[in-house]
């Protein structure tokens, strides 16, 4: 039986993601854990997160999980979600600038205030709701139609230094990177665990993925 560790560092509710992983594949052993040993021995690792980046990085650094994440992100299929994606970047503009894990070179930037949609209405921040995702070919998009809608809720977005790390974009109103991919690592800004059929498919793809792009 394969296993997936969902990293628990006190940032948000992990039950949704655990339930969705279990639903995506009933045979997989899903563990919500803060234990470095369990994370190291799992076949796959999910790194979720909601909230503010300062609290996130503080929790990761104080618990020592930052080093564990850097280590397992080199070796096994690894999925970052939402704040877990932003934390993989070099740094974030949030909370007056916070150094992050630097696994994907790049920056988390805030959406500009007073952006307008096509009809001249001011776009709300956070970017909240179902938006279309334009894919770059990757095994994790298998059986998911291009431009499918996923559920987002965030005010900051990833700006990778190397555009080749971008695995998908969404428009708000300009295109921004909403998925990152490199080697065995994949990360998404949206919430697959809240994105109904297409979200469950992405999680199922992750649970079947060998980590080769």
């Amino acid at each position: 039986m394969s296993s997936v560790a969902v990293i628990d560092y006190g940032m948000g509710n992990l039950h949704s993601i655990a339930k969705a992983l279990q639903h995506a594949d009933s045979r997989v052993n899903v563990q919500i854990t803060a234990d470095a040993m369990v994370i190291r021995s799992a076949d796959r690792v999910v790194f979720p997160g909601v909230g503010a980046i300062r609290d996130c990085m503080q929790a990761l650094n104080e618990s020592g999980l930052a080093d564990v994440i850097r280590e397992v992100a080199q070796s096994k299929p690894f999925l970052g979600i939402c704040l877990g994606m932003q934390a993989l970047l070099t740094d974030s503009e949030e909370n007056d600038g916070i150094a992050c894990l630097n696994i994907f070179p790049g920056h988390a930037r805030r959406f500009a205030d007073q952006m307008l949609d096509g009809d001249g209405n001011v776009l709300k921040i956070p970017h909240m709701g179902w938006n279309q995702v334009k894919q770059t070919p990757h095994p994790l998009w298998q059986d998911i139609p291009d431009h499918s809608r996923f559920y987002f809720v965030h005010s900051y977005y990833a700006a990778p230094d190397d555009q080749r790390d971008s695995a998908a974009t969404a428009d708000y109103p300009q295109a921004f990177t909403c998925a990152l991919a490199k080697d065995n690592k994949f990360a998404v800004q949206f919430h697959p665990e809240k994105s109904q059929t297409v979200g469950l498919q992405l999680l199922q793809n992750f649970l079947a993925w060998d980590g080769n792009a």
């Binding site: 949609d117 776009l123 709701g129 179902w130 938006n131």
Partner: peptide
Amino acid sequence: MSLAKRII
């Protein structure tokens, strides 16, 4: 095409 309006 971009963010959808939601029905709740």
